[in-house]
Design a protein around this nucleic acid. Structure first.
Lengths: 198, 198
DNA sequence: TAATAAAATTAACAATGTTAATTTTATTAA
DNA sequence: TTAATAAAATTAACATTGTTAATTTTATTA
């Protein structure tokens, strides 16, 4: 009984990986059922034996990409830095990552997704990535940069602000360029952290 | 010579209005060239005599919807209120408007748009709407709620935060519900305005 | 080895945006 | 007014898309 499910899961990864390849090479617009089938080495209709539709397959991709983003962020962990600089470094890395990979932003935050099994999705939106932000904020509180009771509020504000900026920037609704955005975020972070003292 | 252009512009409005109707009734997903042609009382291919493609027609719709949003916001101008409450009232109205009209958010901030004549688009992204926010902030400075040199920064922060929250909320990336979002925004606004004193 | 279940493939559908070919309508020249 | 020409509108056609149904192939079981 369980053997079957292992095999099915393996099959799923063939399609998921095919889809991820296509997205990385051609962007989300290049993703079609037929191309996924080709990459996986199966006919296009076979996909529907393993995913209820293309959006569900995309949801699996999204979860993987989210993990990729998390691992990318880990590169910006700087042990020597103090918590304030660490937090800012994470924010900037996050912004840069999506600004330079707009398709990832599209898939993770915009695209309509189908429903992969619930156990994969539970509290998984912004799971590990959001954790980094929270960790940094808590450390900022411990080191006295911000008041403990401001953690929640600051986290919400920063998260919303970053995603708003990314949306407007990526979708060309903001005339600004990447470097200007970055320096704007730096200023805003400095403001927020200086004003949220304990 | 000019007569021709007047006629062409009139024709354009037929298609634009048809498209807007469809979007309002069936959402952006319901918008198709064929349906637009039907509404306008022309064959579907006629559209391509007046717009280079569907995305360009959509760009015209977007500009109209943006104006709609502006007029909606004006309903929340309260002469008696002080600038701080006025600002907050605008923010909440803005959030509510898009949270309750996700297709407007989609078209204005997410959808890929073609290019209508440049004179229509120049500095027009968030034109009048963004103006309301700026006006309110300036008044807040005049009335001593915030420092003058913080206007720019606060405007950027508030704008980004609102759009980020809208994105995550509308796209179901945030588990929260509308009323919780609203009260969260209130708290954040209170924080920002209290901490940005002159 | 025969019967049956499962998996994969091919064929088919309806819908989409867009272009080309064709027909209709308006404008101009005689 | 009528014939030639330009402009506008329509129909026909394409290539793609996601998805489903029908069919064939492969694996499992008796």
């Amino acid at each position: 009984m369980n053997k079957k499910e292992i095999q099915r899961q393996r099959m799923r990864t063939y399609f998921i990986n095919g889809a991820k390849e296509i997205i990385k090479e051609e962007g989300i617009k290049g993703l079609t059922v037929r191309k996924v089938g080709e990459r996986a080495g199966y006919s296009y209709a076979t996909i529907y034996n393993y995913f209820s539709d293309l959006n569900t397959l995309l949801a699996y991709c999204m979860l993987d990409f989210l993990e990729d983003c998390y691992h990318y962020m880990l590169n910006f962990k700087i042990e020597t830095e103090d918590s304030k600089n660490q937090l800012i470094a994470y924010e900037l890395a996050y912004f840069r990552y999506f600004a330079e990979n707009p398709d990832m932003f599209q898939i993770i935050f915009i695209e309509e997704l189908g429903k992969p099994p619930k156990e994969l999705m539970k509290e998984n939106t912004l799971p590990s990535v959001g954790l980094l932000l929270r960790e940094s904020l808590i450390k900022c509180a411990q080191e006295g940069y911000i008041a403990e009771e401001k953690i929640e509020l600051l986290g919400e504000l920063i998260t919303a602000s970053l995603h708003g900026k990314l949306l407007l920037f990526i979708k060309g609704r903001d005339g600004s360029n990447l470097e200007n955005m970055i320096s704007l975020i730096e200023k805003e972070m400095a403001f927020l952290l200086s004003q949220a003292g304990g």
